[in-house]
Design a protein around this nucleic acid. Sequence first.
DNA 1: AGAAATGTTCGGCA
DNA 2: GTGCCGAACATTTC
Length: 258
Amino acid sequence: MPELPDVEVFRHRLDATSLSKVIRKVTVTCGRLLDGVSERALRARLRGQRLIRSRREGKYLLAAVSGGGWLVLHFGMSGDLLAIHGHDVSYRCFRLEFANGAGLVYRSRRKLGHISWAEDADEFIRCHQLGPDALALTEMQFRKLLEGRRGQIKSALMDQSLMAGIGNIYSDEILFQAGVQPKRDVKDLNGRAVKKLFHTMRSVLKSAIRHEANPERLPNSFLLPHRERGASCPRCGVRLKTAKTAGRTSYFCPQDQK
DNA sequence: AGAAATGTTCGGCA
DNA sequence: GTGCCGAACATTTC
């Protein structure tokens, strides 16, 4: 689930439900998700404090805490963030409890995410070798990033140190809508193709955020709702193909993507 | 039963 | 140094 659009939706959810409320209780049910911070230290930094603002960098969600420092959430392959009111949910890993039974719950089905603490958000991002956020890039920067790059375009889009936020699903979507095969070599894309790729990247990410990163709400013309074995291209009806890149599966249309 | 699944990191190789 | 691959991480789902 959690690539840039999903994490942006989580961020909106956090903003809408959890800012400015005093944190009364902190519950950690899955300690192995904690990265570089002990449960006790995390609790001490959060309890009695408030989340005052949020920030997203690539697939990371950071929340500034009133007493200083940042709560950092990364969702791995199967995490999400829910605003709850009293009722319980499964796969719960981490919960902030506010007054009146309201709470913010981090879940991670496969438990591959991370919960950490940063004294300084910018420093945290530097340490994790994160490139500029995909939606913060200008066309000029995007072109510059690809200029010196060898290898496949899909790898470049997914390289978090080059640009942050795009994963397996949305790189497929962007390449589908831009009409470019995932294995296409970066150096074979001309100026026009790079320009198109940039604008497609932005429109795909923004559209996904508008539709709450929910595949069922995305336009049928998107690849995402059809992303399964044996499915057909929503544009031309041809059977979609798959290819493996570093253990990940790419879906693409052999007719529309060159 | 076995494979695959939206992420990151690390070691090895060209 | 760069890019690519597979493995590992942990768990659920088909």
